[in-house]
């Protein structure tokens, strides 16, 4: 079996009296979609924020590729190849598609933007991911939800991401847009990236994931192969009815 690309081991995180994580460990492999599921407050978001460098764990280690970190910053996480697509998409609505794609990664010479090259690269990038946006100079605020998600993902690919974390990727999306995003997620995994998805939507989780990791009370209580389990089993673990 191949080595896990991401190994987050024994993570602890307190917020005052609230123990958000109590020794959570998670492994993610290249070329697969890992779904993290759990009830509200189970610690999913905290876990993801630690892996992406937004939060610092109180204890525990994060292995990314061959590197070991006891804590990450957003910059370090990005450099290590970890990219997060946030629920709010982290897009600048008044800025054009190109600026959003290259945020933090602009092509520049002596501080001057190389706009033409950026535009050409942006078009190439979107095309390679099969994301259809006719005009990359329009503000992102004018795009549909699916297109916006596409821009957010394309930005991460452009950052040289190896690991993609999706937090509720299809929340507030129509059917067509949802399908487009799910296809994109599947495509990323098929191209060998590590993909982690947080979702409450069970049919969707079963549709796209290879493995499911169930969280409860700040711990990972079970990791399952999607093909070996059923929706009922996973839901009973999430709610605690399974008694694990």
């Amino acid at each position: 079996m191949q080595e896990a690309y991401i190994r987050a081991e024994n993570l602890y995180k307190d917020f005052g009296h609230v123990q958000a994580l109590r020794g959570a460990s998670v492994f993610a492999y290249e070329g697969e979609v890992l779904a993290i599921v759990g009830d509200n407050g189970a610690g999913k978001s905290t876990l993801i924020k630690i892996i992406s460098g937004v939060l610092t764990p109180d204890r525990g280690e994060i292995h990314i590729g061959n590197e070991v970190f006891s804590s990450l910053s957003t910059r370090k996480a990005i450099e290590a190849g970890v990219s997060t697509v946030y629920q709010d998409l982290a897009l600048g609505n008044t800025m054009d598609v190109t600026s959003n794609l290259f945020l933090g990664n602009e092509l520049s010479r002596f501080g001057f933007l190389r706009k033409k090259e950026m535009k050409a690269e942006a078009e190439k990038l979107l095309e390679s991911l099969d994301i259809r946006i006719p005009d990359v100079t329009q503000p992102v605020g004018n795009l549909s939800g699916g297109q916006r998600q596409g821009v957010a993902v394309a930005r991460l690919v452009n950052q040289g991401g190896k690991v993609f974390i999706f937090d509720e990727p299809t929340a507030a999306m129509g059917i067509n847009e949802t399908n487009a995003v799910l296809t994109l997620i599947r495509r990323l995994a098929d191209e060998g990236y590590v993909v982690i998805v947080i979702s409450h939507n069970m049919p969707q989780v079963f549709n796209i994931s290879d493995r499911i990791c169930v969280m409860r009370h700040g711990q990972v209580i079970k990791e399952l192969r999607t093909e070996d389990t059923s929706m009922d089993e996973v839901v009973s673990m999430i709610t605690g009815a399974a008694g694990i």
Binding site: T74, N93, N105, G111, K115
Partner: peptide, 24 residues
């Protein structure tokens, strides 16, 4: 309109959190 500084200025205005998360 032509520099990285100006671009970040506008971006921080529209979504400061996003800029921060992008490592700016």
């Amino acid at each position: 309109h032509k520099t990285v500084l100006g671009n970040y200025c506008l971006f921080c205005g529209t979504n400061e959190l996003a800029a921060n998360r992008a490592g700016i």
